[in-house]
Simulated scan of single mutants.
Amino acid sequence: MEKQESQFGFSQFAENWNGRLAMVGFVIGIATEFLTGQGILSQLGLI
């Protein structure tokens, strides 16, 4: 992995991290739904 400096805006570095964190969030959301038996909206009290 090559060393990259932190960058702001629409750069390859920012887009890679955005995608990685979105995938982690999606997996956490699915795992939470599986463990609690409730959807994300019902956990937040929206339905």
Rank of each mutant, 00 (worst) to 15 (best):
W17Q: 09
A14T: 01
Q7S: 08
S6I: 03
I47R: 09
T32P: 01
Q12A: 13
S11V: 05
V24P: 07
G25T: 08
Q4E: 14
G9M: 05
A22E: 08
N16S: 06
L35T: 14
M23A: 09
T36G: 07
F26C: 09
N16L: 15
S11H: 11
L35M: 15
I28A: 11
E15P: 00
L44V: 01
M23Q: 15
G9R: 05
V27T: 12
N18A: 13
M1G: 11
I47N: 04
G25C: 03
A22Q: 07
K3R: 13
G25W: 04
Q12T: 08
A31Q: 01
F26P: 00
G39S: 12
S6A: 03
G37L: 06
G45F: 02
E15Y: 09
G19I: 01
F10D: 10
Q43I: 15
M1S: 14
K3N: 14
E5A: 08
M23V: 04
G19V: 00
W17H: 10
E15D: 12
T32G: 00
I47G: 07
E15K: 15
R20K: 15
L41F: 06
V24I: 15
E5S: 07
G29A: 04
I47S: 12
R20M: 14
L41K: 00
R20C: 03
F13P: 09
G37W: 07
G25Y: 01
G9Q: 11
F26W: 00
L41I: 05
N16W: 12
G37F: 08
V24K: 15
L44R: 06
I28K: 01
L21G: 04
T36L: 01
F34H: 11
S11W: 08
M23C: 02
I30R: 08
E33V: 08
L41V: 09
F26E: 13
E5H: 01
L46K: 08
Q12V: 11
K3L: 14
F8N: 05
A31F: 11
S42Q: 13
S42G: 11
N18G: 12
G25K: 07
Q7N: 05
A22T: 06
S11K: 10
G29R: 10
E15M: 14
W17M: 00
E33W: 05
S42T: 13
R20E: 15
M23K: 05
K3Q: 09
A31E: 07
G29T: 01
G9N: 00
I28Q: 02
A14D: 02
R20P: 00
G37Q: 14
